[in-house]
Write a protein that binds this DNA or RNA. Structure first.
Lengths: 210, 210
DNA sequence: GCGATAATCTATCACTGATAACTTATCATC
DNA sequence: GATGATAAGTTATCAGTGATAGATTATCGC
């Protein structure tokens, strides 16, 4: 059952970056399989073929390592958003498609999504403060394309709320609710998932557009 | 700075329940001030005037203690829902009011809300499984009155989706998104909160009702 | 007073993230 | 090719975590 990970040889002088990638890969696999809380730095180190304190040569804290994985995941979302931009027109159909892109991303990268928007910032500011808010910043960067789409719809007189920023925040909340609940409570007796997502998007469209 | 909590005397034979209440009170105060993760069993024990292992005479695990606080919080929501039921009529105005009740509760009892709907069930089933899913069950019990209202609106032909269950899940997700984001990301540059909530409810109403 | 038992304590465990201080491999240079 | 600098990695250890075992003390019915 235990990963027979071969300890890869010591890295040459300038090649610490390679080890860093190996650690991130090992960590992502473990996090996906067991959840963020359940994976210890010792498990990550073993899977990466390194001693546990060795991790701290590459990441200042465990949270920093997690944050790094997040930023990378959101780079993927940014790419997807940017790709969709090519065919964009201010229509209800494209509205639906943008919503779908967001939901698809959240469900396909649940760990990144969790860290960016679901992990709680403890009151004394431990997690995201120390990592400089990078995961959320990366998440919002990816979200920016979405904001631009809503603004475009608003400029064409298609939105039901005259405040585009407020409407965007409201829609984001609507999307986030579905994604985060599907991630956090998969065992809940949901109606069939695809129909649920379609109905949710339809509901948001009716609520947001004229 | 440290709480000068006087160690209350040993409880008489049948009075263990009192100590249990004292522990729950102390824990709720600490959790509200510092967050769930940041409070240790030793801190709870000291605030309750008891030794750390002494907690385990009353709660099998730390999660059980948290779960107990949750169930109690949701009992309050149930009471609010039940109170609102008296004046219920199947109208858009009452729809708005029900939505508002849910959001108000989430924002006024953020810790309970977090545990019931935001804390991640780790993949090997550690948290809510061990506590028997009681917080979520209590949350959904409180939510049941809300479900009944949607069904009533549906029966009067006022809803835009012909599947009342699916619409309820969709609306729940919409509400949850706003509540959970406001809890988890209070520092985000939101538009003015009351206007945001009102706009969100209006969006959900337009999307859910005819 | 006496035995039973509820309430509680001290001591300790395995584990967590993190740090200090030391060793070893690689590399550019003489 | 030996040398010194430094990157890469180690072992040993720390304080703090949730949790358990077993002894101890207070209260009760008799």
């Amino acid at each position: 059952m235990k990963a027979p990970q071969v300890r890869s040889p010591r890295k040459a002088k300038g090649q610490g970056g390679e080890r860093r990638e190996e650690i991130l890969d090992a960590a992502l696999t473990l996090f996906s399989a067991k959840g963020l809380q359940a994976v210890s730095t010792r498990q990550i180190a073993e899977a990466a073929g390194i001693s546990q304190p060795g991790l701290y040569a590459y990441f200042a804290t465990k949270d920093d390592l997690i944050a790094e994985l997040c930023v990378r995941a959101f780079a993927k979302l940014s790419a997807r958003m940017e790709a969709g931009k090519a065919q964009w027109t201010p229509t209800p159909e494209m509205f639906d498609r943008a919503m779908m892109t967001y939901i698809d991303f959240g469900l396909s990268e649940p760990d990144a999504y969790r860290v960016a928007f679901m992990v709680e910032k403890s009151h004394d500011g431990s997690f995201l403060s120390r990592s400089g808010g990078r995961p959320m910043a990366a998440g919002l960067e990816a979200f920016r394309g979405f904001v631009a789409m809503i603004a475009d719809l608003h400029d064409h007189g298609l939105t039901a709320d005259d405040d585009a920023l407020r409407l965007t925040q409201t829609l984001w909340a609507g999307l986030h609710g579905l994604v985060s609940l599907l991630i956090a409570r998969p065992e809940f007796p949901w109606v069939e998932r695809e129909a649920l997502i379609a109905a949710h998007i339809a509901m948001l469209r009716r609520g947001a557009l004229k």
